Amino acid sequence: MARITYIEHNGTRHEVEVKPGMTVMEGARDNGIPGIDADCGGACACSTCHVYVAPEWIDRLPPRDPMEEDMLDFAYEPDPVRSRLTCQLKVTPELDGLVVQMPERQI
């Protein structure tokens, strides 16, 4: 299991355990974390699972693929460095301690 901390825009923190092999989006969905809508169910087709990754995690995550880059263009206030789609982040033991923050609102 990996501990993932989801921070709502208002600062409310949710630390949950997520099984390896799931995505960070599935971890939020399965644990009732508000603010990550995942309207497309994880198909990288909507950007409603957009988050900002804590700065210390940017270089520890796999790079964004072209499909994720394209969908981030539709995200609310994307950050060129910190923005990620949680449906594209597979949980591994190396992600233990990951911290993500939701933007003010999703589109």
Rank of each mutant, 00 (worst) to 15 (best):
residue 21 G to Q: 05
residue 18 V to M: 00
residue 91 V to D: 04
residue 47 S to V: 03
residue 30 D to F: 14
residue 84 R to N: 02
residue 64 R to N: 14
residue 62 P to I: 02
residue 31 N to V: 06
residue 64 R to G: 10
residue 57 W to M: 09
residue 93 P to E: 02
residue 16 V to H: 07
residue 57 W to Q: 10
residue 37 D to V: 15
residue 54 A to Y: 11
residue 78 P to G: 07
residue 23 T to A: 08
residue 45 A to R: 08
residue 104 E to Y: 05
residue 1 M to F: 12
residue 51 V to Y: 14
residue 86 T to Y: 07
residue 55 P to V: 10
residue 41 G to E: 02
residue 27 G to H: 01
residue 94 E to K: 14
residue 84 R to F: 04
residue 95 L to C: 06
residue 67 M to H: 14
residue 90 K to L: 15
residue 30 D to N: 14
residue 83 S to D: 05
residue 62 P to F: 04
residue 3 R to K: 13
residue 3 R to P: 08
residue 94 E to A: 12
residue 43 A to L: 13
residue 86 T to A: 06
residue 11 G to K: 00
residue 49 C to F: 10
residue 65 D to K: 02
residue 62 P to K: 03
residue 49 C to R: 02
residue 79 D to T: 11
residue 58 I to F: 07
residue 46 C to Y: 04
residue 106 Q to H: 05
residue 79 D to S: 11
residue 31 N to M: 06
residue 20 P to T: 05
residue 76 Y to W: 12
residue 3 R to H: 11
residue 101 Q to I: 05
residue 4 I to G: 04
residue 89 L to Q: 07
residue 42 G to P: 08
residue 66 P to N: 14
residue 1 M to Q: 15
residue 40 C to W: 00
residue 52 Y to K: 09
residue 84 R to V: 00
residue 67 M to G: 14
residue 3 R to A: 09
residue 34 P to D: 00
residue 56 E to A: 09
residue 15 E to L: 13
residue 92 T to G: 00
residue 36 I to K: 09
residue 6 Y to S: 06
residue 7 I to Q: 14
residue 43 A to H: 12
residue 59 D to P: 14
residue 3 R to Q: 10
residue 53 V to R: 10
residue 91 V to G: 01
residue 91 V to R: 02
residue 9 H to D: 13
residue 4 I to N: 00
residue 37 D to E: 15
residue 27 G to Y: 03
residue 50 H to S: 07
residue 87 C to P: 04
residue 94 E to M: 11
residue 105 R to M: 13
residue 70 D to K: 15
residue 58 I to Y: 08
residue 74 F to G: 05
residue 91 V to Y: 03
residue 46 C to A: 03
residue 58 I to S: 03
residue 43 A to F: 15
residue 63 P to F: 00
residue 89 L to T: 09
residue 21 G to W: 09
residue 41 G to T: 03
residue 26 E to H: 07
residue 78 P to S: 03
residue 75 A to G: 06
residue 61 L to I: 08
residue 67 M to F: 15
residue 93 P to H: 01
residue 12 T to I: 11
residue 104 E to H: 08
residue 50 H to M: 09
residue 105 R to L: 12
residue 24 V to E: 01
residue 90 K to T: 15
residue 26 E to D: 11
residue 81 V to N: 12
residue 67 M to Q: 14
